[in-house]
Simulated scan of single mutants.
Amino acid sequence: MKRIDVSSIGFGEACDEGFEQLFPFLDDDESNVMAPIQFASLELVRSALQIAEICSKDKICDIGCGDGRFAIVSFCEYGVQQSIGIEIDSDLATLAKEKVKRAKELLSGDKERNSDKLIIVEGNFFELDEKQQALVEESTLFIVYLLKDKMHLLESFLRKQLEKGARFISILFPFLDWKPIKKSDDEKVLVYSKDSIPKSNCKST
């Protein structure tokens, strides 16, 4: 399967520095902000997917996808079966859909790809409809790029998915007290699997 480089799509400015330095005021537990509007560089996106050992059999779900770069890169450059980006902010969701449209134009000559499997969903991750939820639950690799004090909101969902064999990538921030199975040298990318869940939190069998 041909790898399609998406650099020409024109993703906006990115910053791979810690949000604590950039946005210290967002560490407030009472804030409704799940994640500041700040994008990972394409270099970090590709590195994260490689560290997670992404493969063509994977199905990706990016929770809070911003402009859709994780979803697009994983689908176009790594040939995953399905890639879904979920974004609650309407402006960002519109931007992501525009980027996806351009990505599909790049894929138009590749008969091996079903571009309908590259999807952006505008909405609240916790309020998806039945069809959208079913697509999410099929995913084998999740992307999480959230503030530390918001991680707990995904704990129950991610534990369930990991116990089914999925894994997830957290960008910049460690996920609660879970132990990553892999991480980048600079610890900006952390990969989690079923083995990451503290034993006391695992369901008994």
Rank of each mutant, 00 (worst) to 15 (best):
K2D: 06
E187L: 13
C76I: 01
K150H: 03
S83N: 08
N201I: 14
D16H: 00
A52P: 09
C55R: 10
G10L: 11
I4E: 05
V80S: 06
A40D: 07
I181H: 08
Q81K: 15
Y78D: 05
E127Y: 07
S115A: 09
V33W: 06
E127F: 07
Q82H: 08
P180M: 15
V136N: 04
G85K: 01
I51V: 15
E98S: 04
L49E: 07
K183Y: 15
K150E: 03
D89H: 07
F175M: 08
E112I: 00
K164Y: 14
R167P: 13
V80D: 02
A93D: 03
I51H: 13
S170V: 09
K199S: 12
P174K: 11
S56E: 10
N32W: 02
L172W: 10
C61D: 10
L92K: 11
N124G: 06
L106G: 01
A48H: 05
C76D: 04
V80R: 01
K99N: 14
V33D: 06
A48M: 02
I181V: 15
E77R: 03
Q21G: 13
I197G: 10
D186K: 14
L44G: 02
T205G: 09
K99M: 00
D29A: 12
S108W: 01
C55S: 13
D28Y: 03
D58S: 15
S8F: 04
E77D: 07
K99W: 00
T94H: 05
K97V: 00
Q21P: 01
M1T: 07
G123N: 10
G18W: 12
A48L: 06
Q21N: 09
H152A: 07
C15N: 15
F168Q: 02
F19H: 03
L44K: 10
E30H: 12
L107Q: 00
C55L: 06
D5Y: 01
S200N: 13
Q50C: 12
F125W: 13
G10S: 11
D29P: 05
F168N: 02
I60H: 08
L147V: 05
I88S: 06
S115R: 03
E127R: 11
R159H: 14
Q81S: 11
G109F: 01
L162A: 10
I181L: 13
N32T: 10
S204G: 05
L128P: 08
N114S: 06
L106M: 08
P198V: 15
I9M: 02
E53L: 14
S83F: 04
L172N: 14
I9L: 04
D110W: 00
K101L: 03
E105I: 06
K117C: 02
M1E: 06
L49C: 12
L190P: 12
A35G: 07
G123D: 07
E130H: 04
S83D: 05
L49V: 15
Q81P: 05
E122F: 06
K164Q: 14
Q21M: 10
L42M: 13
V6R: 03
G109M: 05
D129C: 11
F125A: 00
L141M: 06
G66A: 14
V136I: 11
S56R: 15
D5S: 00
G165H: 14
F168E: 05
K183M: 14
S196M: 08
R46Q: 13
P36F: 04
